[in-house]
């Protein structure tokens, strides 16, 4: 199910910036699932996503003092950190994304139930997302898995809202074609 993130109280942000461990713990509880899901659909490996999720919050603690609420929403700022860490991760693994799931793809040739229709699952979504561009994938995950509004997705990805809307439509369109090709239903 999609996580709907509500706007944070500025007072909470201020307390987090002053280093209040309890508030930082609350922020962690509030965002850890959405950050994890973003990471999971980025890297395609549960364990790596768990590790990167931890890294996001460790980096958040160190960077909190540099966060300016007037410039960007907290959600967008946090996902900027997550996105940067994911990029760092790609670099460390030699630029190749672990999301290359070709070996896991169930091809028509291999699938004994090729004629049976399949319903959309998170695994199939993960595989389909791997076919999208990075930006399209980010938009789809932030918008529909994590429930961020267009404005915050735009801030997180440093794009205009119009650009995000276009990426959103193209991403959904490509995803639909892939799933149709795989005979995956989602109605």
């Amino acid at each position: 199910m999609t996580i709907m993130l509500e706007t944070l109280n500025p007072e909470l942000i201020a307390r987090a910036q002053s280093g209040d461990p309890a508030v930082i713990g609350d922020l962690y509880d509030r965002y850890r699932l959405s950050v994890f899901r973003y990471m999971y659909y980025k890297v395609g490996d549960l364990h790596v996503a768990e590790d990167l999720t931890s890294d996001v919050f460790l980096r958040m603690i160190r960077a909190l003092n540099s966060y300016r609420p007037q410039n960007v929403s907290f959600d967008a700022w946090l996902f900027q950190i997550a996105r940067n860490l994911a990029i760092d991760h790609y670099r460390k693994v030699g630029g190749k994304t672990p999301l290359s799931l070709e070996e896991h793809m169930v091809t028509d040739k291999d699938d004994p139930d090729r004629n049976l229709e399949r319903s959309l699952t998170s695994d199939l979504l993960l595989q389909a997302l791997s076919k999208l561009s990075d930006l399209q994938r980010d938009v789809i995950v932030l918008r529909f898995v994590n429930g961020l509004p267009i404005a915050q997705v735009a801030q997180a990805l440093h794009k205009s809202e119009d650009a995000i809307k276009a990426l959103q439509r193209r991403g959904l369109g490509t995803l639909r074609e892939i799933l149709t090709d795989w005979e995956v239903t989602y109605a």
């Binding site: 962690y28 850890r32 699932l33 899901r37 931890s54 959309l120 429930g147 959904l172 995803l175």
Partner: peptide
């Protein structure tokens, strides 16, 4: 596209087994 977006939202997405 709307149906797909709606389906993605309704999916049971994975949860972390163990994060910090």
């Amino acid at each position: 596209l709307l149906m797909l977006a709606s389906a993605i939202r309704a999916l049971p997405h994975p949860k972390p087994v163990s994060v910090l």
